[in-house]
């Protein structure tokens, strides 16, 4: 079966997961929460199969490479990473609210990948610069980092609106999730920048060249670095921290999308 078809099925699974989380929130029904988690588990299994199918298919086409090398493939992996990170932290925080954020993000991203005419979903051959194992570790760690930041973004938004929305009253939880996801994301982003530097060094002959994409990843890293130090060392709290985390996620989005659409540079493949 074609992987793009499987991905469109997964898109609906994530949509229904978000829907059930919403039901569980509004009507406080425990079964809905369970149903949503079950949907996410099956969703990510099918999602993983789709990624593997695409990988195999690229070899059948004679241009075999890991499915992490164009915009479509990166979107598919990004949404996979969000669900993956959510499922890991789910047990710890027991909060279906974060589940809404994760499944909704994953749904939106996949829907954009499958339905938008702008995203080419066919398997493309790799130009020589992309034929590197560093590329795989670079993309995997960067997108896992982005996934953590997406979840911390959701938690920060919840933190900010919690005084007005009674179901979100547990501010301490949002604060905690924001911090934990930012620390995890910071480590992964650091890894992503390092593997990216190693790749750039082999492919282009320099590990850092102030290319707009590189610079924006540094900007993102600096913002989250400021977040961690503001919290751990300077003792900042509350709204200020949520705002830094939201700024950080805006920088993530700009690194991922804005640089390609608005600025130009060497990274124009992804």
């Amino acid at each position: 079966m074609n992987d793009t078809y499987i991905v469109s099925i997964v898109t609906f699974i994530y949509f229904f997961a978000a829907f059930f989380y919403l039901i569980s929130l509004v009507f406080r029904k425990r079964f809905a929460d369970g149903a949503a988690s079950a949907l996410l588990f099956s969703g990510i299994s099918v999602h993983t199969i789709a990624i593997i199918v695409r990988w195999v298919r690229s070899y059948q086409l004679g241009i075999g490479h890991a499915p992490l090398s164009n915009f479509y493939e990166s979107l598919v992996f990004f949404s996979w990473a969000i669900i993956f990170v959510y499922l890991i932290i789910m047990r710890r925080y027991k909060s279906g609210l974060i589940g809404i954020v994760a499944s909704f993000f994953a749904f939106i991203i996949l829907a954009y990948a499958s339905l938008s005419g702008q995203v080419a979903d066919h398997i493309q051959p790799l130009v020589p610069a992309l034929q590197s194992n560093w590329l795989i570790s670079h993309v995997v760690s960067s997108f896992l980092a982005y996934a953590c930041f997406a979840i911390s973004f959701g938690a920060s938004i919840f933190y900010l609106i919690s005084p007005r929305v009674s179901v979100l009253a547990d501010r301490k939880l949002w604060d905690e999730i924001t911090y934990k996801m930012v620390s995890m994301g910071f480590v992964l982003l650091t890894l992503g920048i390092i593997t990216g530097a190693a790749w750039a060094d082999r492919a282009w002959g320099r590990y850092w060249g102030w290319d707009p994409k590189e610079t924006w990843s540094l900007i993102t890293w600096l913002i989250y670095g400021a977040f961690l130090h503001a919290r751990l060392v300077a003792g900042w709290k509350g709204v200020k921290m949520s705002i830094i985390s939201i700024l950080g996620f805006l920088a993530v989005i700009f690194t991922y999308l804005g640089v390609n659409y608005i600025l130009s540079g060497l990274h124009s493949y992804l």
Binding site: T215, L218, I219, L222, I223, A226, A251
Partner: peptide, 14 residues
């Protein structure tokens, strides 16, 4: 410094 470097870097990408 984190913020100063971030803000000035933005200028360097624009």
């Amino acid at each position: 410094l984190f913020f100063a470097l971030a803000l000035t870097s933005i200028m360097g990408t624009v």
